[in-house]
Amino acid sequence: MSRVSYVNGTYRSHAQAVVHIEDRGFQFADGVYEVWGVFDGRLADFDGHMTRLHRSLNELQIAIPMTSAALKRVLDETIRRNRVRNGIVYLQVTRGTAPRDHAFPKDVAPSVVVTAKTIDPAKGEALATKGAAGVTQPDIRWGRCDIKTVGLLANVLAKQAARERGAYECLLVDEMGLVTEGSSTNAWIVDADGKLRTRDTQANILRGVTRTKLLQIIAEEGLELDERPFSVDEAKQARELFVTAASTFVMPLVSLDGTKIGDGKPGPVATRLRAAYLEQADRDAI
C-alpha cells in the first residue's frame, strides 16, 4: 500500500504530496512540528502535544491553522488511510508560501502537512530490553530550543554523529559541561544516590510531552526527583541513564562515550517507568 499524506486540505499519495518551492518551511525553516505516538490506531498524549503546538505557533507568531477538533480529524484520517495501528503521526505547520523575504509576509495562510507511518513495537522493546549506546558532543543549537521548530540541522548533525559512532542517541553538552538533552530526546539519570534527575525546562531545552507525562508517573509512583542538570561525568557514574520521547517512550542507555553505565544493563527504574508509561499512554490514547 502506498503511503498517503495530508497537504493543505487534500489527501495525496507520497509521490504527489508537494508544497510550493517558496514555502517558508523550505526556505527559512519557518515552521513548527509535533509527533504523536499511535497506540492501536489512537493518539497518545493528544492534549499535551496540542498545547505545545499552540505555544510554538504563538512564539513564532504563526496563525493556528484550524481548531484542535478539526486537526484531530485530519490526524485520525491520515492514520486510517495509512492503516497505522502502532507508530507515529507527524504534523508540520509553516508560516506559508510567499515570495522569498526574511520579514513576515502579510495575509498568508499557514501550510499544513501530516504524515503517518508504522513502527514495529517489537523492535523498540528488544532495544529497551538490551539497552542502547549514547555519545556526547557540544550543544551548538540556537537559543530557543523550547520552541519545537523544524530548524533541526544541529540536531541532525548530532544524530548523525551518534550513528557514525555506532550509538543510538547523542547527548548535547553546554559550555559548562552539563547535559542539556538528546538530539531528539530528553535525558535522565538515576544518580549515585539513587535519585532521579533531569534538567528543568527553564533551561534551553524542549518541554517534552513524554517528559511531562513521566513526571506525573514519577509522582504517582512516589519516586524522588530532582529537576536540575547533571554533568557528563555524573551521567557516566550514574546508576542508570535513559532518554524519553514520543517515538521511543523510555529508552535505557547502557553506555556513554564507551563508558559502561551501572552494570551495563537497563536498570530497574527505567524499566519500571517504561512499562508504566506504555500502560498509561495506551489506556489514555484517544
Rank of each mutant, 00 (worst) to 15 (best):
K123H: 14
H54G: 11
G25D: 00
V269D: 00
A281K: 03
F242W: 14
T248Y: 07
L178K: 14
V108S: 02
G166L: 01
V35Y: 05
T10W: 01
G96Q: 02
H102W: 08
R239D: 12
E221P: 03
R81I: 02
V179A: 01
I205E: 10
R274H: 14
N186K: 06
R100M: 08
I64T: 15
D282Q: 15
L171R: 07
G41T: 06
V114T: 00
A128N: 11
K130T: 13
R165M: 04
N8I: 00
R12E: 10
D174Y: 00
S231A: 05
Q280A: 10
E77D: 13
D47P: 09
H54I: 15
L256P: 08
T94Q: 00
L60R: 00
K195T: 10
T185N: 07
D76R: 04
L241A: 10
V250C: 15
V190T: 10
A126Q: 11
F26N: 03
E279G: 08
E234S: 10
L206F: 11
G37L: 12
R52H: 13
T118A: 08
W188M: 12
A126I: 03
A44C: 08
D263H: 09
I119S: 10
D30R: 04
A161L: 04
R80T: 05
T51Q: 15
A203P: 04
S2Y: 11
E164P: 00
E175G: 14
L153A: 15
P266C: 04
P65E: 04
L171V: 04
F249G: 01
A133E: 09
K117G: 13
L91V: 05
R80H: 02
Y168K: 05
N58C: 11
S68M: 14
R274I: 09
A238L: 02
A69Q: 13
Y33K: 09
L241Q: 02
Y6K: 00
E164W: 03
R24M: 04
R163L: 11
L206H: 09
R85T: 13
G208N: 10
